Simulated assay, not measured.
Amino acid sequence: MHEKTKPTLTNSLLWLMTIATGLVVANNYYNQPLLALIAKDIQVSESVASNIAMLTQIGYACGLLFIVPLGDMFKRKRMILIDFVFIIIALIGMALSPNIQMLSIFSFFIGFTSVIPQVFVPMAAELASKDKQSSAIGMVMSGLLIGILLSRVISGFVGSWLGWREMYWIAAAIMLLTASILAFKLPELNPSFKGTYTELMKSIWSFAKSQPVLQLASFRGAMGFGSFSAFFTTLVFHLQGPPFFDGAAMAGSFGLFGACGALAAAFVNKFTVRYNQRHIITAGICIMLLSWFFFSVLGSFYIGLIIGIILIDLGLQSMHILNQGDFYALNLGANNRLNTVYMVSYFIGGASGTYFAAQAWQHYEWNGVIVVGLIYSIAALIAHLLFDKQLRNQTI
């Protein structure tokens, strides 16, 4: 009966979810090109300002853990619209914050509330017909990737021309408009989990402990995103010094080059028909390592940074897509909760990469950041080479 009454995933609805995903996830990344402007405005050091980016990622990880699983318990549309109210409050709070303490609090809550994209991904899979599930997930994921990368471009230019606070006022207005459209166009989906919230959370922990494929995918994702975050958090500091002497707009514009790599990664599933998935993940991690070679050797030239950004995005997003494919292939009937484990790990890795890169920048500047990025990428490669083949032979 449920299948008969389930809404249909039309092209217009899929586009709406994809665009909304990009717009919401962008809230988490507006701050990165703005860190130098924020540090100057409230008169704190660059490493202290970097905590804003770290706290947003920690907030996102907490939101993934505590909010996203509620999609299995409550009506999805109602939950999404309520969450939008808190997103808007957090963005307005950020725009009005007078000091680093308030900025830190609202940065955390922006991340904590801006988790709607991870509700839309399984929602698209649930609404799509079996033969179109993969393409529907890929479409929403494309919106997420573009939102992550173009958010830096937008905030860099808005910050340079209007100011960093204005970026958050604009973001709040965008969220209000997005929520209004979703209120009219988004269909309702009934919950699938009948237990209590405590039982739901216990099942997430159970999956985290008992599924080695999920554990490996989560570790690779965490290390990959840690490496990626180490670069993008400190890029604006690197660009404002010699030999570049550029600011937020230039740091943000590099997101356009990253978008090229990320969009190329969206086609990675086509290679799985011809090549072993394990080998493609190996290649993705090695591409990330290669990006750090360019950041190291040619990091004082725009061309080196551009090539490195394309490579680090291509490598990370290729690995990210195949990581998700690995644990979805387990067919445990709990994709929301499996994705929660993975994405929480992913953003904890990103937050730690942000933190250690900020400390490295403070003491050793660009060379320290390169060491941090390499350590994260090498850790992902070692874990992959040690465990992937054995696990794939056993399970996948």
Results as ranks from 00 to 15, higher is better:
155 S>M: 05
109 F>I: 03
238 H>S: 07
360 A>W: 01
213 V>W: 01
299 G>K: 04
320 H>A: 05
258 G>Y: 03
274 R>V: 00
352 S>I: 15
300 S>V: 01
346 Y>S: 08
293 F>Y: 12
48 V>N: 00
41 D>M: 14
243 P>W: 10
289 L>E: 07
12 S>E: 13
286 C>I: 10
359 Q>F: 09
290 L>D: 02
73 M>F: 04
324 Q>A: 07
26 A>W: 09
92 I>Q: 07
343 M>L: 13
102 M>F: 13
205 W>L: 15
203 S>N: 10
199 E>P: 03
100 I>F: 06
82 I>G: 02
13 L>M: 11
222 A>P: 03
238 H>W: 07
261 G>L: 12
223 M>F: 14
304 G>T: 07
296 S>P: 07
95 A>C: 09
71 G>N: 09
317 Q>E: 11
386 L>W: 07
247 G>H: 09
1 M>F: 06
159 G>H: 04
137 I>A: 05
185 K>V: 12
119 V>K: 02
55 L>P: 01
347 F>S: 10
164 W>K: 03
57 Q>N: 12
101 Q>I: 15
265 A>F: 05
203 S>Y: 00
221 G>W: 03
68 V>N: 08
366 W>Y: 08
57 Q>G: 11
110 I>L: 05
216 L>V: 14
307 I>K: 05
175 M>V: 06
90 A>T: 04
380 A>Q: 09
381 L>A: 11
220 R>C: 11
198 T>L: 08
282 T>M: 01
374 L>E: 00
282 T>F: 01
155 S>H: 06
251 A>P: 01
326 D>V: 01
133 Q>C: 03
128 A>W: 06
63 G>T: 03
64 L>I: 14
8 T>F: 02
75 K>D: 09
386 L>M: 12
46 E>M: 07
103 L>Y: 11
151 S>G: 03
263 L>A: 13
287 I>K: 04
36 A>D: 14
